[in-house]
Amino acid sequence: TYYTVKSGDTANKIAAQYGVSVANLRSWNGISGDLIFVGQKLIVKKG
């Protein structure tokens, strides 16, 4: 599943929404920190 980042989103918020850990969200998308951008497409695997 892909999720498009919206204004006000955070890695924590997206992870919680899908029931996954922030560490997994980072791993699936090659993100090292919490910096995400509006319009960015993230791979999300439901927990």
Rank of each mutant, 00 (worst) to 15 (best):
R26N: 08
S27T: 11
V38S: 06
G30N: 15
G47V: 13
Q40G: 03
S32R: 10
G39F: 04
V38H: 06
K45P: 07
K46L: 15
G33D: 12
I31Q: 05
A15L: 03
K13R: 09
S7Y: 14
G30Q: 11
N24A: 11
Y3M: 05
T4Y: 12
S7H: 13
K45Q: 13
N12M: 15
V22G: 04
K13L: 10
G33A: 09
I43G: 02
V20S: 03
K41Q: 12
N24W: 08
V22Q: 05
Q17G: 06
L25K: 00
I36G: 02
G33M: 14
G39S: 04
K13V: 08
Y3V: 08
N24H: 10
Y18T: 07
W28R: 01
Y3D: 02
G19L: 06
N12P: 11
I36M: 08
I14W: 01
I14H: 00
V22W: 06
V5L: 00
L35W: 10
Y2R: 06
G39K: 03
K41H: 10
L25I: 09
Q17S: 10
A23P: 06
R26W: 08
N12R: 13
S27I: 13
K45E: 10
D34K: 07
D34P: 06
T4W: 11
I14G: 00
V44D: 01
Y2K: 06
D34W: 07
V44E: 01
N12Q: 15
N24S: 11
N12W: 13
Q17T: 10
K46S: 11
Y3Q: 02
D9T: 01
G8E: 06
K6P: 02
V22T: 08
Q17W: 12
S27W: 10
G30E: 11
K6F: 04
Y18Q: 07
T10F: 03
S32P: 09
I14L: 05
Q40F: 04
I31K: 04
I36S: 02
G19A: 07
S32W: 10
F37E: 11
D9G: 00
W28E: 03
W28K: 01
K46T: 13
I43S: 04
G47D: 13
G19I: 04
A23R: 08
G39D: 06
K41I: 15
G19V: 04
G39Y: 02
S7K: 13
F37A: 09
V20G: 01
G47Q: 13
S32C: 12
V20Q: 04
I14R: 00
K45N: 12
A15N: 01
G33I: 10
A16G: 08
Y3F: 03
R26T: 10
Y18S: 05
Q17P: 00
A15C: 08
K46H: 12
A11S: 07
G8M: 05
N29A: 02
G33W: 06
D34C: 10
Y2L: 09
D9R: 00
Q40V: 06
K46W: 15
I31C: 10
A16K: 12
V20C: 09
T10V: 05
A23E: 15
V22M: 10
K45V: 11
G19C: 10
L35V: 12
A11G: 04
T10I: 04
K41F: 07
G19S: 08
G33L: 14
D34A: 07
L35R: 11
T4V: 14
Q40L: 07
